[in-house]
Design a protein around this nucleic acid. Sequence first.
DNA 1: GCGCGCACTTGATATTTATCATTTCCAGCG
DNA 2: CGCTGGAAATGATAAATATCAAGTGCGCGC
Lengths: 225, 225
Amino acid sequence: MSPEDQHRVETIVLFKDVPMPAVRSLAQACATQVLAANATVFRTGEQPSLLHLILAGRIALIGEGAGDAAVIEAFGEGEALLTPAVMLDRPYLLTARTLIETRVAAIPAETFRAVLDREPALARAVINQLARHWRVLIRQIKDLKLRAGAQRLASYLLAQDRSCGGSIYLPMERRLLAGRLGMSPEHLSRAFVQLRPHGVASQGRSVTIVDDEALRHFCDFDALI
Amino acid sequence: MSPEDQHRVETIVLFKDVPMPAVRSLAQACATQVLAANATVFRTGEQPSLLHLILAGRIALIGEGAGDAAVIEAFGEGEALLTPAVMLDRPYLLTARTLIETRVAAIPAETFRAVLDREPALARAVINQLARHWRVLIRQIKDLKLRAGAQRLASYLLAQDRSCGGSIYLPMERRLLAGRLGMSPEHLSRAFVQLRPHGVASQGRSVTIVDDEALRHFCDFDALI
DNA sequence: GCGCGCACTTGATATTTATCATTTCCAGCG
DNA sequence: CGCTGGAAATGATAAATATCAAGTGCGCGC
């Protein structure tokens, strides 16, 4: 592994509070790789032998079933992929696919579990990441069960980061976003139309929330934490 | 706390591999309580000051939003409630309500986090429980996005434990089960009718799967892991 | 510049699911 | 024994969403 890659692994947010020697031993066990867009990292049903860390880029976790498929969630820099499968040594429930060119580090599952068992700080970091992800999933389930399509889109948009320029660049194709939001691509298209009078302007993958307040009100953003 | 309760806490599955002294110190910090059915343990939005462990009984985690509510998941003996909120010290995203009379132990969040940081075995146990729960949620999201109502019911029934007598006793009222499965109570009722020709006999809360194979085929049980 | 392919949109229609109103069932109780 | 109240089932209807079939826009390579 190149020194740059080693440095990238060592400075990953997940390892922030982990003692340097442990981080270094993890980094040395890593293999890094740059994947093109739309590359498959692993598939549903496979046994996890590696823990994947995203060093840069974006990866979607996709649920697959009888002919159909839907994005469950997409993760970016600093996130570990499907720690649950790796920790329990059970087959993946999801397929991972890159959304854009992505740099990943892969640590042998055995190594990771071993370091985890003797490094409380790493264990705590994993717990915190799992806990954050858990809450992301809970919000999604609440959304799916309690809100209609257009409201889900609205609250998704409100939750997106728009620190730069106030405009959102959708992290995936609309077709995939439809899956993430639990609706058909056609319905997503109509949902965008529905949101127009509520302060959302969109063209292509860039979306602007014109009237934040109106949109929050439309989807009861605050009622559903 | 009574010696029996202390013993109950000490022998909880979650603590199986945790050294006795640590378990004992946790147990001593516990307060135990027996709650009647339909009692609220905590509410959405509250700050978690305690970690709740289920010693016996059953508790539903309920998502609440604008007038509506839906069971996300129900947990039984040996499970910790919403460790993510406790670990991150963030407000609960869900409300917890007992489904039947339930005995819970409550450990101050601070104490739990402190013991966790110096007991790798406890950290590992929490990771494993979080990982299992994560996978439960993933399955639910896949179900919601990829299957229709009746199929969700079918796969839910197939996943239930029927070790005793081959018959299932639904762990909650049908109204709540409808929420768990992401549909209206009326629709659940019709879904049961729909499953009748596929080998499901039900009366009240007891359900019998007459023809396992037919039901598996109906909902593509194996296609969706 | 001009097709070409591909993602997205739009329209028409079918299906699924929710809602509301009513009825049935059944446990608990005087 | 019949009454009563809540849960569940059923029926009728409405709303949400999916599906299928064009159409539109647009980047890209020739």
